[in-house]
Design a protein around this nucleic acid. Sequence first.
DNA 1: ACGCCAAATGCAACTTAGTTGCAATAGAAA
DNA 2: TTTCTATTGCAACTAAGTTGCATTTGGCGT
Lengths: 143, 143
Amino acid sequence: MKSEAIPAILKKYKLKVTPVRIAVLRVLIDSDTAMSHADIAQLLSDQHFDKVTLYRTLSHFTEKGIVHKVATEDRSWLYAVLAENNADIATDKTHAHFICDDCDKIFCFPIDEGSGQSVKSMKKGFLVKELEIRLHGVCPSCQ
Amino acid sequence: MKSEAIPAILKKYKLKVTPVRIAVLRVLIDSDTAMSHADIAQLLSDQHFDKVTLYRTLSHFTEKGIVHKVATEDRSWLYAVLAENNADIATDKTHAHFICDDCDKIFCFPIDEGSGQSVKSMKKGFLVKELEIRLHGVCPSCQ
DNA sequence: ACGCCAAATGCAACTTAGTTGCAATAGAAA
DNA sequence: TTTCTATTGCAACTAAGTTGCATTTGGCGT
Ligand SMILES: [Mn+2]
Ligand SMILES: [Mn+2]
Ligand SMILES: [Zn+2]
Ligand SMILES: [Zn+2]
């Protein structure tokens, strides 16, 4: 992704263009997996952004729909950009998360519309609005 | 469920029969939704069990497979008995979780074997071992 | 029934991801 | 350039869950 594209995304979502936002969004766009606050802080440690600023940046991105977050098994959050902000990563409103039980990385996958439908109409009286599929297993790098 | 059945379940899983274990397992079996540590502590507050003991009880139950736990959106765990320990609640290794966005309750549902299969074989190179489906929406009581 | 011992319990201190309040700073619109 | 509001940095805080350790107890062998 061209570096001038990142300020353009921030402007599109009515967010002020600041150094921390540019840096965090670039990191997320360049990653092929979902990332934690700690992952991002580690990668950007030379720029010594405050941890609270990073948390708030991730919250803003999530509220605006630039990224989405996934709860992990160890009580933390992972963040990944949504498809429209990175053509390389295929994500969508309804998609699957593959969780590698070896390296704990989480990958976002698209799923075809139909595959969720059978599940959605399963139980009478429950109004289903969104569907998330979680796959546990071993990722390619860990096999 | 008959009250003498609970010690029998504990014995079946090679756990010593203690007051806290009987109480916690009864609460979980009687519940129609998954419960948090705080939920359980609240219900058993008159018996003033230590909070660490409750945490360890839930860990033991999970390790033995009497219950399973589900990560919530707010960094906590919910616990629910597995099917074999309560015929009234239908759960299985592969099943769905319905999360009510109003009351935050989580319900366990069985899913038919087939519905997951299409998803499992989706991405080349990823070895899928387990499947969890999460449905977000509104439960019957909240509509 | 009695004694033994590993397992279970209670308590205090600790860990850690994430939050809150507030004063100082800096985008960006005018 | 000025102004105003959103953003940032820092310190203190919250809350779920964990760890260490001394005390107690369930269940087994006798
Ligand atoms: Mn995703
Ligand atoms: Mn379940
Ligand atoms: Zn892996
Ligand atoms: Zn509800």
